[in-house]
């Protein structure tokens, strides 16, 4: 690495006044060490790495997340930073931290001791098909499509697509009322993101107290017991509060 310029990669903000290392990690074949950069009771978890753009390939993304997971095991107040930010010097990171401090001060008490969990509910194909066929409106259009040639049935097909979409929207509302709403009342905060596939009926994140984690797991399991014949649950965590911290910074051209 001799002669190569290095920069400071930042992973997350934490609340601490003690210098802390969160171990070594591999970045594109070389071993790097984590350290903290401090301002008052806030710190950035960072590492010195070659100054270049890191592409979000699987290895790099997992490396970022693994460091955050490691930090979360030792610190209960973690503010996640998005992937791939590198600053020229420790001094620059310190300036950034000083600028962010008013936000950090406000956020620390709100996220202390809390974790994010994610719940995606995906409709099983067989069940969705069954629901489609039970729908009288869809059944009628489908029959009419079958009787016609492909060209003649063109508008019926569009209608069929509309009807299927309406049906999925209806199921999403049903799942929201039956699964999301009760979980929301148990969480500190909750958020629904857009589904990332056609058969996804719920894409939610919840911010929960660490000491309520087990209870929340149980509630998710109760919902799963009720819905497992019709849907698949994808339940993940603990995550840092990615879906509940939204700080956008602007970089100005010098």
């Amino acid at each position: 690495m001799e002669g190569q310029k290095t920069g400071i990669y930042i992973f997350c903000g934490i609340q601490t006044e003690e210098e802390t290392a969160f171990g070594d990690f591999e970045m594109e074949g070389d071993t790097r060490t984590t350290f903290t950069i401090h301002y008052k009771d806030a710190a950035m978890v960072a590492a010195e790495v070659p100054m270049k753009i890191y592409h979000p390939n699987k290895q790099n993304l997992m490396m970022h997340q693994q460091i955050l997971a490691r930090v979360m095991k030792e610190n209960d107040t973690v503010i996640p930073i998005s992937f791939g930010n590198i600053f020229k010097s420790r001094e620059d990171v310190k300036v950034l931290l000083e600028n962010l401090y008013p936000q950090f001060e406000e956020l620390f008490p709100k996220i202390k001791g809390k974790i994010e969990v994610g719940l995606k509910v995906i409709g099983k194909k067989d069940w969705l098909r069954k629901r489609v066929h039970e729908n009288p409106q869809v059944g009628k259009i489908a029959q009419s499509v079958q009787r016609k040639s492909e060209a003649a049935g063109y508008y019926d097909r569009i209608q069929l697509g509309d009807a299927a979409q309406n049906m999925i929207t209806g199921l999403q509302k049903e799942i929201e009322a039956d699964i999301y709403t009760p979980l929301e009342t148990e969480a500190e905060a909750a958020a629904i993101n857009d589904p990332i596939s056609e058969t996804m009926l719920l894409n939610a994140s919840f911010l929960i107290n660490r000491d309520k984690e087990e209870k929340f797991d149980e509630l998710v399991n109760e919902a799963h017991d009720k819905w497992k014949d019709y849907t698949d649950f994808n339940y993940t965590g603990p995550w840092p509060a990615y879906n509940f911290i939204n700080i956008r910074l602007t970089v100005e051209e010098a």
Partner: peptide
């Protein structure tokens, strides 16, 4: 809109020179 902890911050970092990001 929906996140209760949303903090909208406009912290301006002095210069693009100090910073690199893939995205």
């Amino acid at each position: 809109g929906i996140e209760i902890l949303t903090v909208e911050a406009r912290v301006v970092i002095a210069s693009v020179d100090t910073w690199l990001r893939y995205a």
